[in-house]
């Protein structure tokens, strides 16, 4: 299977503090890779490095065979890297439809004629048709989370970086998100997914990596990573 994303010896320090420490991993095309780790493990920083908000201190990021390490965020977005935030950050003074439109037009590089129908499809896929005309800043939490995913999807990404959707949701709602993300993957999108809720990660991902203090602790099949002594020590203190 071809590699969609390859991360090589990636490091980021803020002063003396290494938030990401010599991390290397690869994600195959069409795969769902879960990222786990305790608070402060460097998971969200890793997403910042991949999306381009954070400039690495060392290392390289290769996306679809191209070195994107030096590219600014908007160039990475246009190449197909989309990122969501744990605390959704919609353009609050714009409607849901407008939010998706800017994502489709800029990130998705669609022209006006194609952007409209595409946004309609994304709204249907994410179950947000009825919210299309709502100001995104006024959406309730669950809808905000869905909107965050919908807007990323509107960019027609090749790689979707999902940062914690399960927190604060009921099991039923989490299952809806799992189904949605798996449906997105079926359309050919590669997914990297950070989650705190272990149950979700076990069932919903193809492979896991575990981070601790910025370092890669373990990687492999979900059950194997959970069973590994290093991960158990970090999580259970055992």
């Amino acid at each position: 299977m071809p590699v969609a994303l390859a991360v090589r010896n990636l490091s980021k320090s803020f002063g003396a503090l290494a938030v990401t420490d010599n991390v290397s991993f690869a994600v195959n095309d069409g795969e769902i890779l879960g990222v786990i780790g305790p608070n402060g493990a460097g998971k969200t920083t890793l997403f910042g490095l991949l999306a381009g908000n954070i400039v690495p201190s060392a290392g390289a990021i290769e996306f679809l065979g191209e070195d994107v390490t030096a590219l600014p965020p908007h160039e990475r977005a246009r190449r197909g890297i989309a990122r969501t935030y744990q605390v959704p950050r919609p353009f609050g003074h714009m409607t849901v439809y407008e939010n998706l439109m800017v994502a489709a037009r800029f990130g998705g590089r669609l022209d006006l004629d194609d952007a409209g129908p595409w946004v309609d499809r994304v709204l249907a896929m994410t179950g947000m048709q009825r919210e299309a005309a709502t100001l995104a800043g006024r959406l309730p939490l669950l809808m905000r989370k869905r909107h965050e995913l919908a807007r990323a999807l509107a960019m027609r990404p090749r790689l979707l970086l999902v940062d914690e959707v399960a927190a604060g949701l009921t099991d039923e709602e989490v299952n809806q998100f799992i189904a949605l993300i798996q449906a997105i993957r079926k359309t050919g999108v590669t997914v990297v997914w950070i989650e705190h809720v272990m149950k979700t990660m076990l069932t919903a991902t193809d492979r896991l990596i575990a981070l601790h203090s910025g370092r890669l602790l373990a990687s492999g099949a979900p059950q194997d990573v959970f069973a590994s002594p290093e991960v158990r020590r970090v999580y259970l203190g055992a």
């Binding site: 381009g52 908007h74 989309a82 714009m94 990130g107 807007r151």
Partner: peptide
């Protein structure tokens, strides 16, 4: 307009706009 929405998006959240492919 296309440009107008981009201006509003960047004014709402200047950090997110580039992640959507816009050039601030």
């Amino acid at each position: 307009t296309h440009v107008g929405r981009a201006i509003r998006a960047a004014s709402d959240d200047a950090e997110i706009a580039p992640l959507m492919g816009m050039r601030p």
